[in-house]
Every structure is written in structure tokens, then in C-alpha cells.
């Protein structure tokens, strides 16, 4: 197990390097000169501009800039924005909010998704099952942003059940965004759970469990549920990373001051350092979530042996 874990962590290094390099290259290629942009309408003072460039290493070749950036990351220095704010401040401000939002979405997926999925699976072929299946497809088909602003309008503005925006990032105001964020994944969780339950219900070992004289409820809980939930847990774990990176649209609609909004702003303002730093962190979260899922898998399924 320890060996496996360390091997996995070693494997993460090239992925991390590759991803940051990729994103760095893309940001590097962004049009416009952020330095000249700083001067706004004022005439550009070339001397000052060169000074700024040197300060931000913008006069170095691409690969050197990348390596300097990596070095910074290693010592926890994410650099500073052009307006002079340390990027770490932005990160410290937005990450907690998005983590909160993502976890709320994850809990919704977990509770609602698994419950509905199990009920549908047990009632395979019945009205409830086909309705759920159809509805889940519809949810997948409607773009998140439409769900988002229609939900915001109906529940936030017309009915007034929730705050329409979530700038304060309180649990109550994040509830609506969390539901929207969870939306598509929720549909996937339901379908996955249902398929898994249906498959396991007709498994040979479940029949054998019944043949032993176990009661129906015991067979369901001990032999069907546990087996069915393994792929669901895997999906949920991997989804945490996706939720955090995918929150851009939801945060944009609900004006949540989170990672997505900060990133979107930074992209629009060509704030390379901020974009690269945030994306790097997101990728780290994503990769670690996946590692955790793999390890969890080994705990849940004794057949998996990581030597």
C-alpha cells in the first residue's frame, strides 16, 4: 500500500509538470501586452515598462519564466499580480468559498443521487425508474447556465426562497448555487447508482445469499448496496476535482467570489500569474482527489491489492 501510494505520487509529478507547462504556454501566448495595458490611456513610458517587465521576469525567454514560476510554487511563492497584490492573497480569499461550494454540491450528489438511484434500481422497469431515467437525461441535456439563471430567477427572485446572489458565501446563500453546480453530476450519480444496483441485484452471489435464508432487507443492505456503491464512491471522489474546476459558470451567475470568478477575471485581464497559479492548484486538488479515490477503492474492495 505504502509502495503503491509513493509510486502514485511519483507518477503525479510528470502530470503536474505537463499540466502547468501546458497552461503556462497558453497564458504566455495571450495577446496584448499586460504591461502596456497597465498604463491605460496614459502614454507608455518605455523605461518604466521595461522596469516592470524585468521585475516580473517578462523579459526572460518562456522556458526560464516557467522554471522561475515553478521555483516560486515550490517555496509557496505564487508571485504578485500586476497591481501588486500577492496572488496568494487571492487564493486564500477564493479557495475556501469554492471548496465549501464544491463540498455542498458533493453532499447533494451523494445523498440525493444515491438515494434516488437506489430506489430506481430496486424498482427497475417501474414507472418511478423510467421517470427518473428520463429526468436525469433532461438534466444532462440542459446547459448548466440555463439551469442556473432560471433557478436564480424562480427560487431567488420570484419565490424569494434563497438569496439571488451568494457574495457573502454563507451556507444558505450557497445552497442554490450548489444545487445548480451538482445538477449534471447528480444525474450521472443517479444513473450510475441505478445501473450498479440493477447489475448487482441479479448477481449470482445475491441469489446465493437469498438461498442461505437471509431476509430480503439483509440481502439488500449487506450484499447489494455495498457492492453497488463502490463505483459510485469512485465517481464522487473524482468529481470533487471536476466540481471545483467547473464552478466558473455557476459562480459567474450567482456572483460567488470563488475560484471560478477569480479565474475568469484573471483570464479577461490577462493576469498570467494568477491564472497559472490557480489552475495549478486546481490540478493539484484534482490529482489528489483521484489518488484518494484509488486508495479508498483499495479499502472498499479487498480484491484490489496494491503491492
Amino acid at each position: 500500500m505504502l509502495r503503491y501510494t509513493s509510486r502514485r505520487i511519483l507518477q503525479m509529478i510528470p502530470v503536474l509538470l505537463g499540466t502547468t507547462l501546458l497552461i503556462y504556454a497558453m497564458v504566455f501566448a495571450m495577446p496584448g501586452d499586460p504591461v502596456t495595458a497597465l498604463f491605460g490611456d496614459k502614454p507608455v513610458n518605455e523605461n518604466v515598462a521595461d522596469q516592470i517587465r524585468a521585475e516580473y521576469n517578462l523579459d526572460e525567454p518562456f522556458i526560464v519564466q516557467y522554471l522561475l514560476f515553478l521555483k516560486g510554487i515550490f517555496v509557496g511563492d505564487f508571485g504578485i499580480t500586476f497591481s501588486g497584490r500577492p496572488v496568494i492573497d487571492i487564493i486564500a480569499r477564493v479557495f475556501p468559498t469554492t471548496i465549501k461550494l464544491a463540498f455542498m454540491a458533493l453532499i447533494i450528489e451523494m445523498v440525493l443521487g444515491v438515494a434516488v438511484g437506489v430506489m430506481a434500481g430496486i424498482r427497475k422497469g417501474k414507472l418511478f425508474d423510467s421517470t427518473v431515467l428520463m429526468l436525469s437525461l433532461v438534466v444532462i441535456a440542459i446547459p448548466t447556465f440555463v439551469l442556473g439563471f432560471v433557478g436564480q430567477f424562480v427560487f431567488g427572485i420570484e419565490l424569494g426562497w434563497f438569496p439571488a446572489t451568494a457574495r457573502d458565501a454563507s451556507i444558505g446563500s450557497l445552497l442554490m448555487p450548489a444545487v445548480v453546480l451538482a445538477g449534471v453530476s447528480l444525474a450521472y450519480v443517479i444513473r450510475l447508482t441505478r445501473t450498479s444496483i440493477v447489475e448487482n441485484l441479479s448477481a449470482d452471489h445475491v441469489r446465493t445469499a437469498k438461498a442461505k435464508g437471509l431476509s430480503g432487507s439483509r440481502v439488500t443492505t449487506v450484499h447489494v448496496l455495498r457492492n453497488s456503491l463502490i463505483p459510485v464512491v469512485t465517481f464522487l471522489g473524482a468529481d470533487l476535482g471536476t466540481l471545483m474546476g467547473g464552478a466558473i459558470v455557476t459562480e459567474y451567475i450567482f456572483a460567488v467570489d470563488g475560484v471560478g470568478s477569480a479565474l475568469y477575471d484573471a483570464i479577461l485581464r490577462s493576469e498570467g500569474t494568477t491564472v497559472v497559479s490557480i489552475v495549478t492548484l486546481l490540478v493539484v486538488v484534482y490529482i489528489f482527489a483521484n489518488l484518494l479515490v484509488d486508495l479508498l477503492y483499495a479499502v472498499l474492495d479487498p480484491r484490489i491489492r496494491y503491492a
Binding site: V15, T19, L22, I23, M26, V27, M30, G241, T242, G245, G246, I248, V249, L263, Y264, I267, V275, V279, L282, V283, Y286, I287
Partner: peptide, 11 residues
């Protein structure tokens, strides 16, 4: 590992 929409936005 790169979030899909995000990468698209950047490019």
C-alpha cells in the same frame, strides 16, 4: 486533469 471549459476559455 485540466478542467475542460477552463482550458477552452484560456485558449
Amino acid at each position: 486533469a485540466l478542467p475542460f471549459v477552463l482550458a477552452a476559455i484560456v485558449v
